[in-house]
Design a protein around this nucleic acid. Structure first.
Lengths: 208, 208, 208, 208
DNA sequence: CATGAATGAGAGTTCATTCAT
DNA sequence: GATGAATGAACTCTCATTCAT
């Protein structure tokens, strides 16, 4: 039993370390320079053992992707739980996508590489779509309580597009807006949209 | 002397053909599948000659990057010339980024793989920033004639972000909006913004 | 001393289990797919222990070869013991080589991969020749009691060749004869041969 | 034009040399030791060029197999053309499978390896079945002119099985019969069969 | 100029084997 | 005894690059 735990523990550690090493290797050498040999070297292991813990490079890559997606989703969730009103929930989704220490050039480039790879990697495509669906749903639910359904849908889409666009631009250079700037920009858009949006039907929001 | 000219001429033609072939290869197979052999094949030349005209793959790659960026800018420029009013100029920039036959899943993914590579290719970063600057400038100049300077800047940025975001989302799956949908969405945003924007100072648009 | 016995006993059991597992792995995956890891897995042991009990894969392979040959011989022997007449002994040898559940495409192919390896494994060649000698001898002894010595030798050889040929053909496709068909064919040949064979010298079979 | 011929010529030469080298490598190191590197080395080429002429190892292997199958079929055909009577045609098929310089231990082992590989190599399975079909057809047609249809079928099958069996046994050791011995043995079987076979219906052989 | 034959480095992957625990 | 973590050699295959023709 103890033995089992030790075994699992080592495997867990190694897999985590390898995912981390793969990610760092990617940041340093790009997607193309992210070879199994280099990953192993960075993790201080032989390249043989990398294939022992991950049956293939694709599997390792998928693990890296999953970790990335979840870490972003987790941040958003954390903020959603702390949100007290629909409008705050919208802000939670927006801010959740731009933690200052994550919204960096390197990480943005990593994300773009993932996207580019989605074609060859059905699983990652699925992950992305799932994450996108969650985001759209969160935004739409919150906005529905602030304006009409159709308007909510349009605004939610605009926000989602802007979030993606901001990340794409982040990968371009360091001269673009920082996290706060982006958040401010999108929030301003939301506020403007609210001004234009029709007042909610009186009865409909008795619930909120 | 004549000989010299002929040689140079052939060289120019070959280089242009090879860049074109490389670009098409890139659009079809993505950055990873853009091999020297495939480029030569597509250009109807031996792959040996590719290395004759471009000392290395990186050199060819740089040429392809230049061409890619310019070809997108050219489409926008074409539409800008046909635009009759500031508002139409805004629309020209928007529509210029979404030709229906170009705004496809594969091409979007190819572009992302480009972006992902920019980190290792300083020149490409420069190119992208230049193109982005042009776009921002075009949008800003047009919008300035429709609203206040500060508002114009904000709206121009929103449009630019949405253009980038739409392309990123296009790479995600085929279930997203098509070119017309995206254009409609952004145009609607522009129209809404105009409603909120302050009326122009009386004299400002006498020029137009 | 008792300890010694226990140790030896476990070792014996483990080695037998491993040979059995290797044999089954071989039948299922062929010579090429018979890896140490798969053998260990099939035996329900770690693959590390396989190398503990067999210094190398070749040593295990030799053991498997021995087992394989013996297991085929055993089936024939079982039937031989039940045979009541010389003619039945001939049938025993024939049928002993074609158990319906063994005479399959996969197993036939596995055996061929064995044979193909014999060139590099002197011991396996020896084993095969020994088994072949036993078979020839069994057939010859039985047939000698039914016909002349020279004829017996010829018929025994034909039977042996047909047995081998039937296995080789079995590996070709599933469209060939099944076990019963092959047995029937060879038996018919034996019956025909008996018709042509000279009657036994009167005294010759008094011995039987 | 001349250029084209030169090119093709080199390619033809290289491919032929590589097939030959692959075959020799196999004879020396067995199927498992027949690596691309060793093949290239034996052919005096880099291993890179091997993959240049044969897109994959399987393709090279298939070429080796095809060459082997065709060389056996060609020998049989050559003899069939020289045969003057049905009985001689039967002999042609038999002798055609056992040229003295081909019926050797090494070559027999090579054949077994091919058979063992047929499972993973659909094309080779097809080749084998095609060759077998031709053989069966040739034998049956000739025998039908010597005896009844049903008998012809049985005898043809026996001959085919014996041919295969003789090759399998040849791979076992050098102590088995040589080519002449095998041919004699099978011919004797055919002669015996003719004795037992029913005389042909009177009219049936008016044709021959 | 142009070809394509040839090279060789390096990619991912498999696997027998060793060894600390 | 037994495990499975770890190594490293070897394999197939790809590809940018060089070079004789």
């Amino acid at each position: 039993m103890a033995n089992r735990i030790v075994r699992t523990s080592i495997e867990t550690i190694r897999r985590r370390d390898l995912v981390e090493a793969a990610y760092l290797t990617f940041l340093e050498h790009g997607m193309q320079g992210m070879t199994m040999a280099r990953i192993g070297e960075r993790a201080g292991m032989s390249h043989g053992i990398v294939n022992y813990y991950f049956r293939s490079k694709d599997e390792l890559l998928a693990a890296v992707m999953r970790k990335s997606v979840f870490s972003v989703m987790a941040e958003t969730l954390r903020r959603l739980r702390a949100a007290a009103s629909p409008r705050e929930r919208v802000s939670a989704v927006i801010a959740g996508h731009f933690p200052a220490d994550i919204f960096t050039l390197d990480i943005a480039r990593a994300w773009l590489s993932y996207y580019a790879l989605a074609g060859q990697h059905p699983e990652f495509g699925r992950l992305q779509r799932a994450a996108d669906g969650r985001r759209a749903s969160n935004l739409h639910h919150a906005l529905k309580q602030l304006t009409g359904n159709a308007e909510a849908r349009v605004i939610a889409l605009s926000i989602a597009i802007m979030i993606d666009g901001a990340w794409l631009r982040r990968a371009r250079s360091n001269d673009t807006m920082d996290a706060d700037g982006v958040i401010g920009h999108i929030e301003a858009y939301v506020d403007d949209s609210m001004k234009l949006a029709p007042p909610l039907p009186a009865a409909g929001n008795g619930r909120c």
